[in-house]
Design a protein around this nucleic acid. Structure first.
Length: 449
DNA sequence: TTAAAGTCAATAGA
DNA sequence: TCTATTGACTTTAA
């Protein structure tokens, strides 16, 4: 793929050695502290440690992460996906044995990798692991072995359990009664997972469009209106914001790759929604990074519109339908949403019924629901470049860089990224400016419940 | 204290 | 069975 030439192969081995071999071939600085072969310690150790380099590897994973040069997260996930599918290896297996993550997390990570520079140390870890794994010549083999072993174990278990009937049942559900008293098993009553109804989600999205950072009061009102727990509403906003952000990241990447040379190689490349937002809107919301105005969103956060506002993240679920919503501004940076707009704009198809949800159906509740359309548009591939931050400069980093095998690519990418960044910055400023204007003009956004 | 980041784990769908 | 989605929780940072 992209950096085709270099990537994998060679870098690979060196890194592999670094990680697996008792004596690191290349590396320089890291010296030997400790070392140990961490050969996939794990992989084979099967049950014990799920993680390959966990525990005692020469360099702890954290160290590797810390010293790692900028990695192309998008490219890495792309390759990992390829390898996994080509070899019929599942995310669960991969996640548990290689990354130490659950299937859902892996899925998410592979589908929506954040750019390196946006990741915290912790967040970079899985990518470093993936890179190491990709570099390991025996990666597939090892995983296959694991798979076989698991299967064997499963069969065995199954076998025995069959003979003595309920072993499984008892373990999971029944049993506890025996204890009678034991209080704890009791609250095993896990609370059921909340599943928001489509109308509820719609309402929340609408609310988000007006105020991505709703005040406690607003949250309270929303919760009441929707008959949800406040915590649910709060969580929803947190999750939505963060997911939108990620969605935008990947759009950004795609946009970048598209504008660039080209997605020559990626098969799926062009299919994606080409439209993915003119880069104009692709960034605003995102770069805002923190709570808008820097200050922790308080209630005040609501009052002035904040730049981060962005109508729907188009990448998210309801994109298209909602596209209508954005349509008008599509070619320009999202205009600061006028307060209230969202609601009005929404074509109110409102199936009258919605009420299904809870109580009162009021503005929020009635808006039409356009959810659905989720084609998560294929996210394409092609040039991965994600990051931009120049790789760290220490020698250590350098050596590592060579270990990870990239570097030139990264630098070349940087230029492109920076220009993109500039563009975005300008765009952002523009938006902010407009928002300010709008804010001074019309302040109050009332929730009409 | 709040928001973001990172995950888990339940679930829905294929 | 496997993957994708998503509400909730935990940790981290400001």
């Amino acid at each position: 793929a992209p950096e085709s030439p270099m990537s994998s192969s060679e870098s690979v081995k060196s890194l592999t050695e670094l990680v697996q071999q008792p004596c690191p071939a290349i590396d320089t600085s890291k010296d030997g502290k400790s070392q140990e072969s961490s050969e996939p310690p794990v992989s084979e150790s099967q049950s014990t440690t799920p993680l390959p380099l966990s525990g005692h590897s020469a360099l702890s994973i954290q160290e590797l992460v810390a010293m790692s040069p900028e990695l192309d997260t998008y490219g890495i996930t792309k390759r990992v996906k390829e390898v996994l599918t080509d070899n019929n290896l599942g995310q669960r297996l991969f996640g548990e044995t290689i990354l130490g993550l659950t299937q859902g997390s892996v899925s998410d990570l592979l589908a929506r990798p954040k750019p390196w520079h946006k990741l915290s140390l912790k967040g970079r870890e899985p990518f470093v692991r993936m890179q190491l794994w990709l570099n390991d010549p025996n990666n597939v083999e090892k995983l296959m072995d694991m798979k076989r072993m698991e299967k064997k174990a499963y069969m065995k278990r199954r076998h025995s359990s069959v003979s003595d009937s309920q072993s499984c049942e008892s373990s999971s559900a029944g049993i506890d009664y025996s204890q009678g008293a034991s209080p704890q098993p009791q609250h095993q009553l896990k609370k059921p997972r909340v599943v928001l109804a489509p109308e509820e989600k719609e309402a929340l999205k609408r609310a988000y469009q007006q105020k991505p950072y709703p005040s406690p009061k607003t949250i309270e009102e929303l919760a009441t209106q929707l008959n949800l727990k406040t915590s649910t509403v709060i969580n929803w906003f947190h999750n939505y914001r963060s997911r939108i952000r990620r969605e935008l990241f990947i759009e950004e990447i795609q946009a970048g790759s598209q504008s660039t040379a080209g997605s020559s190689d990626s098969p799926s490349a062009r299919s994606g929604r080409a439209a993915h937002s003119s880069e104009g809107d692709s960034c605003d919301g995102v770069d805002a990074e923190g709570p808008p105005d820097g200050k922790p969103s308080g209630p005040e956060a609501l009052r002035g519109a904040r730049p981060s506002e962005r109508a729907e993240p188009e990448g998210l679920e309801d994109t298209d339908d909602e596209g209508r919503l954005r349509a008008p501004r599509q070619s320009s940076p999202p205009a600061p949403q006028r307060p209230g707009d969202a609601l009005e704009t929404l074509p109110n198809s409102a199936t009258e019924g919605d009420a299904s949800t809870s109580a009162a159906s009021t503005s929020v509740l009635t808006g039409e629901s356009s959810y659905k359309s989720k084609e998560s548009s294929e996210k394409i591939s092609s040039v991965p470049s994600t990051s931009s931050t120049p790789a760290a400069g220490s020698q250590k980093a350098n050596s590592l860089q060579s270990l990870f095998g990239f570097s030139e690519a990264a630098s070349s990418r940087n230029t492109r990224d920076s220009s993109l960044r500039k563009k975005k910055a300008a765009n952002l400023n523009n938006i902010i400016h407009r928002l300010e204007k709008a804010a001074s003009r019309e302040e109050a956004v009332e929730w009409e419940f």
